[in-house]
Design a protein around this nucleic acid. Sequence first.
RNA 1: GCCAAGGUAGCUUAGCGGCGAAGCGGUGGACUGCAGAUCCAUUACACGUGAGUUCAAAUCUCACCCUUGGCUCCA
Length: 458
Amino acid sequence: MLYIYNTLSQRREPFQAVKDQVVKLFVCGPTVYEDAHIGHARTYISFDIIKRYLQYKGYTVYYLQNITDIDDKIIKRSQKLGLDPLKLARKYEKRYHQDMEKLGVNQVNFFPRASEHIDQIIGQIQTLIQKGYAYPTPRGVYFDISQFPDYGKLSRRKVEDLNVSRLETDPYKKNQGDFALWKLRDEGPLWDSPWGSGRPGWHIEDTAITEEYLGSQYDIHGGGLDLIFPHHEAEIAQMESASGKIPMVAYWMHTGFLNVSGEKMSKSLGNFITIRDLLENHHSQVFRFFVLSTHYRSPIDFSIKALEQSAKSFTRIKKLVNRLYQLLDEDLKESAEEPFQGWLQEYKEQFFHYMDQDFNTPPALAAVFKLTRKINQALAQTKPSLPVLKNILSFFHDLEEILGLQLRAEDEEHRVDESAELLELILHIREKLREEKEWELADKIRAKLIDLGYEIQD
RNA sequence: GCCAAGGUAGCUUAGCGGCGAAGCGGUGGACUGCAGAUCCAUUACACGUGAGUUCAAAUCUCACCCUUGGCUCCA
């Protein structure tokens, strides 16, 4: 039985799909006006693994992620650069997809863009006005939070508290907490609407899109912790008011923040790291493993030291897996004493047990480490029979699928290609030198190779 | 002020009523010409403070101290 922590109820709940074995998953996508950072990466890797695991559990998952391509930040930046806002958005959308590809985040089925769903957005706003939940003003259409008694249920906020706004007060708003559904504007990308030309507010694109593709009620809505208020709160207000159906989503899932060396990542602090920056010097697989080392809802503290630690831990598992693949070529005898199968059973069960507890990857990985140690120990004495070896490898293969990690080394070997031959030659020469006991020169070569980023195993 | 998360071995993280935990690090060993990598073993009074509930608490209750984040830019 899978349990999922629901932000709405603040507890773990047994997971049950709304309809049969189909899970509809929506995760708030990026606003494409600059390169995505490693905080985005944390969130999207988490949901990538969540989807993979649900699929492993036998669900058919439809995963939707919107692209916010209409937004004040995009407009601001495009004005600065003298570019068309939508062109700018397309550029960063493309770069976003490239980044995700490199991170192995590839589970999203469809990326609807806000700009391509204006009709649905207008339709939903009209419904809200008709039902008395929204009202037009000279500056735009607003949602009237006083008409929705549940407003604040996700973020646990009282409407009274929301009347104190840090922003300039808007004389047309009925309540200071009311949020824009449609903004009447004269410049920037504009669309016609019954209320005049302008553009949609931030929150409405998600509910218009999800209603279109997932219906007014669906299984899981995810995003970063920072989206709970006001974004997700507003979505609930819009959708549940428009459809009259409660709840809009069965499970609200939120990922914790990624901090950098204990501090919030921000441009003013100068510790802002984009995915591109990261991947220049570090392997995407290692970052994925690093993300797994903390539960998805907990804050995770990024540092080079922590990343290096993850690299070492990850290597430990990979080494074993490759050792096991090598065994396939050996002559394996049937033996009566077979400790491997029992361990596999035990730790495999542990792994899935913890994954079932709200995708608790740290103890799930701990079980894998325990299995690794056990196998390493036993391998000094005996070897598994072929069928058992295949069972073990099959488990590691499942791990690769679920976690989106590559445990077999073949990948890296292919990557080297050209320089490989050259390297081969150098190593061969060094080997000769060692035979001749020319240590000094051999060590010099080794030192230089290490400087260049190569490791020597002999 | 309100809301939320958290304070667990040197470090990073799990556990959340009863077998003292995973990785990294440290130490010892195997391997090696040496070093590294790898493998094995081992190490560590572990649970912010004070009180309470309980046969039993890191785990529940209360109080307090400290940290971080959110409060309409934000994954």
